[in-house]
Every structure is written in structure tokens, then in C-alpha cells.
């Protein structure tokens, strides 16, 4: 199946030199997307974290030790591994903007997409969402709650995308060419250091256009050829090196085979 091309490609550029790992993005994501709090959230094998902040280490000690924090939303791959495998078209990459959708009422919960995604961006709803009594009053109107047994994932706060397009229509703008900043996912909006930039990576008027092409920009596992729409930036070489596997060649910057 050939990857679909889009005129508008929503993408993220995360500046890893600015991310303090505070976790506000994870919280904002959970709130926006009505993920019920888990009593034992320390069991990371069963949590739902559409946005997950990884801690990266340079594996040195003392004054040489360095860490970096890497927020991982869904990569919204240009050539997603998850979409073609879904037996029931519960996930698709078909809409202008290139966001990989997830249709909860369609999903049968086979988890084939999870097996396909090397970023672990997809989560299985192990249990029905249970909010503490009364907390359902604080549910966000943006995202429907999901029953157990379906797979879910980050969708770049898709409702905000639709709202931004509606707003553009009402105000006489062009919904197919939103201005920079008109559409922002919750994580990018809340980040206290502005480490997460968001926009159309194909639109020259959007800040991310240039950032994604910067010399320190990279994507995770580029060599697998999944063509993610999430970019990372770091001036630190060891961080960039952790973005892909170089065990075979020993050095980063090996020819990008696929994209």
C-alpha cells in the first residue's frame, strides 16, 4: 500500500534541550482526553499514556552524567505500521493533515496495531474507565470515553483541529490553511518551557517548517521508514544518537534508506 500524500501535514517539533520532564504535557493530555486515573499507575505495563515522557541517560556517572527527557506522543507516521494491519479499518490515515485516526466503536481490540507500532504509542484499554465519584463532572467535552477492550492513542487532540477549522470558517478564513498557532494540541499548549512546537510541517509560514529541517532535528527510528510526523531537536549528540539504532554502523548520520 502506498503512503498517502497530504498538502497539510500536522507535525510536532520537540526541543529536547528545553524539556525539563515536568510532566505537564502528560497531565494535560490525560485531562483533555478523559483518561480515567488509575489507582496503581506504577504498573506501566497497564497504564494508558497517550503522551509519555521517557528519561534518556548518557549512561555516564558523576559530573559526566546527563539526562534528557523525551515526550512521546503518537508519531502520526507518514507511512504508519499500524494502519495497514488493522483488520477492520478502525485506524486510518486518510484525512487532510495526516493524523492517524482511531475509531473506538469500530475497534475489535485485536492489538495487532500495538504489535506493529515500535513506538509503543498505542494503548489497550484494559478496563472500563472509572472516575472517582463526581469526577465525571470534570470530563472534557473533547473526547468520548472509551469502553474497555479497544485500542486508543494520541490523535493530536483531533477535536481541537476540527474546532480550529470551524473557527476559521466562521471567521472567513481558510480551514484548509490554518495560520500558525490556530490549532494546538493540549500538550503543546500547556508546556511551560514551550519545548513542544506544533504546526504544519509543509507550510513555510509555520514555525515548525524550519525547525523540522534544522541540522539538529531528527526523528525516532527513521531507518525503519515509518516517516514520523513528530520531530525532535537536540544539540546534544548522544541524545540524537538515541533516536535511532546505530549498532550496526556505529555512527549516526548513516544514509537514510527509506525517506
Amino acid at each position: 500500500m502506498k503512503a498517502k500524500e497530504f498538502k497539510v501535514t500536522w507535525g510536532m517539533v520537540v526541543d529536547l534541550d528545553k524539556c525539563t520532564g515536568c510532566g505537564a504535557c502528560m497531565t494535560a493530555c490525560q485531562v483533555e482526553n478523559n483518561i480515567a486515573p488509575m489507582v496503581d499507575a506504577s504498573n506501566k505495563m497497564r497504564t494508558l499514556s497517550w503522551m509519555l515522557v521517557y528519561e534518556l541517560s548518557n549512561k555516564k556517572s558523576g559530573a559526566e552524567a546527563e539526562v534528557a527527557y523525551l515526550p512521546r506522543p503518537c508519531m502520526q507516521c507518514g507511512n504508519p505500521a499500524c494502519v495497514p494491519v488493522c483488520p477492520v479499518i478502525a485506524t486510518d490515515k486518510n484525512e487532510e493533515g495526516g493524523i492517524v485516526s482511531q475509531i473506538y466503536p469500530r475497534c475489535i481490540g485485536c492489538r495487532y496495531c500495538m504489535a506493529a507500532c515500535p513506538y509503543h504509542a498505542r494503548y489497550f484499554n484494559w478496563e472500563d474507565p472509572v472516575f472517582p465519584k463526581g469526577m465525571e463532572k470534570a470530563l472534557s467535552p473533547s473526547t468520548s470515553t472509551r469502553p474497555r477492550g479497544v485500542v486508543e492513542k494520541c490523535n493530536f487532540c483531533h477535536t481541537r483541529f476540527m474546532q480550529a477549522k470551524d473557527k476559521a470558517r466562521q471567521e472567513g478564513g481558510n480551514p484548509e490553511s490554518l495560520p500558525d498557532g490556530a490549532y494546538m494540541p493540549a500538550c503543546a499548549e500547556i508546556c511551560p518551557t514551550g519545548a513542544i512546537s506544533f504546526g504544519d510541517v509543509k507550510n513555510k509560514e509555520h514555525k515548525v517548517f524550519e525547525l523540522a529541517q534544522g541540522k539538529d532535528a531528527f526523528r525516532l527510528l527513521e531507518k525503519l521508514g515509518l516517516n514520523p510526523q513528530v520531530y525532535y531537536v537536540s544539540k546534544r549528540e548522544w541524545v540524537r544518537k538515541l533516536g535511532d539504532n546505530y549498532a550496526a554502523t556505529g555512527k549516526p548520520g548513516a544514509a537514510k534508506k527509506h525517506s
Partner: peptide, 26 residues
């Protein structure tokens, strides 16, 4: 048993994704 929504098990026929190997398997 393995799928999360057993009552949707037949969706493989109802909403088939012809590109998926799993559809073919189903």
C-alpha cells in the same frame, strides 16, 4: 477471547481492511 471486544468479532467481515493480513486470516 483474545480480542478486547468479542461481540465485534465479526467486524472483520463487516468492515474488512483488504490490506490487512489479519483480515485475510479471519
Amino acid at each position: 477471547m483474545d480480542i478486547g471486544q468479542p461481540i465485534r468479532a465479526w467486524f472483520g467481515y463487516w468492515h474488512p481492511n483488504v490490506h490487512s493480513m489479519l483480515t485475510e486470516v479471519i
